[in-house]
């Protein structure tokens, strides 16, 4: 098995400056330099610097999702964090995005929210920095590309976008400094932490059975299974588990049955002896 970490949460951040406070907060270490700068820690958190713009965000999602070769099919969580502009929201306002509209493609995405998420806003992803703030929504340059790509490799409930206001009608984009970005991003941590723990809970539910299946498959790795036999076997594992009969399952798997057919038959026969 590759590691004991059975969930991954991937942060997608446009610029290194935006990433700094997150790198410190999650104690992330440099992992790769090229083609993307990626950081990670031992607790399943990874961060990729995507570069600016929706298509860069989208490419970064695809890259990191394929990086580890998630062959067990574990679900992963996704968070896009960054700065955004808004007509009149105060600088430093942090929020979860409840709707993402792409100005270019006209596509609209609706990230799921948790019951606790009170501070939420709509967001428009644009190609160039927005200085007019035409609509009463926040503006960024990545979220639409990020969300579209992440929704192709993950459940929608595992994808979040968190933004912090960096510019508005009274403080233009031109006033943004490195120091300001760092200060603003520090503020996002209070929104990020509960989102991360929510994600961990969801991932624990979604990945629990996959972890179990893979652990049991390890015990019979010397037996050859066809794809359909393997699927039958996994379902039998799940049923033993659901019935609270994992010990019995381990005993059967350890009793040196030599063929896939033998094993499948033995497991189904045992399950028929239902105890309720």
């Amino acid at each position: 098995m590759e590691s004991n970490i059975h969930f991954s949460i991937n942060f997608v951040v446009a610029h290194k400056l935006e990433a700094k406070p997150l790198i410190r907060h999650f104690n992330l270490k440099a992992y790769t330099e090229k083609p993307y700068v990626i950081f990670k820690n031992e607790n399943g958190i990874r961060l990729i610097i995507s570069g600016m713009g929706a298509s860069n965000a989208s490419n970064a999602v695809r890259y990191i999702s394929e990086l580890r070769g998630n062959r067990f099919g574990y679900s992963e969580g996704w968070i896009n964090v960054g700065i955004a502009g808004h007509r009149d929201l105060e600088l430093g306002t942090c929020f979860l995005v409840n709707k993402i509209s792409s100005k270019k493609t006209k596509e609209v995405y609706y990230p799921s929210l948790s019951i606790e998420a009170k501070n939420t806003e709509g967001l428009i992803t644009v190609d160039r920095p927005e200085k007019l703030y035409a609509d009463d929504e926040a503006y960024d340059m990545e979220a639409a590309g990020f969300f579209k790509a992440a929704s192709m490799c993950s459940e929608l409930e595992l994808i979040n976008t968190i933004k912090v206001i960096s510019d508005n009608e009274t403080s233009s984009i031109d006033n943004i400094t490195e120091k300001l970005i760092e200060d603003l991003m520090l503020r996002t941590l209070s929104v990020i932490d509960p989102v991360v723990s929510e994600l961990e809970k969801k991932l624990a539910i979604l990945n629990r059975v996959l972890v179990l299946e893979n652990n049991f498959l390890e015990l019979v790795k010397s037996i050859h299974f066809t794809v359909s036999q393997r699927n039958q076997l996994k379902r039998l594992f799940q049923r033993f588990d659901a019935m609270g009969r994992k010990n019995e399952l381990s005993r059967i798997l350890n009793c040196n049955l030599v063929s896939a057919d033998q094993l499948l038959l033995k497991l189904s026969d045992e399950l028929k002896r239902q105890v309720q």
Partner: peptide, 17 residues
């Protein structure tokens, strides 16, 4: 349907909130 019928939703997870 834009919200309700999307693919890649998880009923079990969504049921929590």
């Amino acid at each position: 349907g834009e919200v309700f019928n999307r693919t890649n939703q998880n009923f079990r997870i969504q049921k929590q909130t």
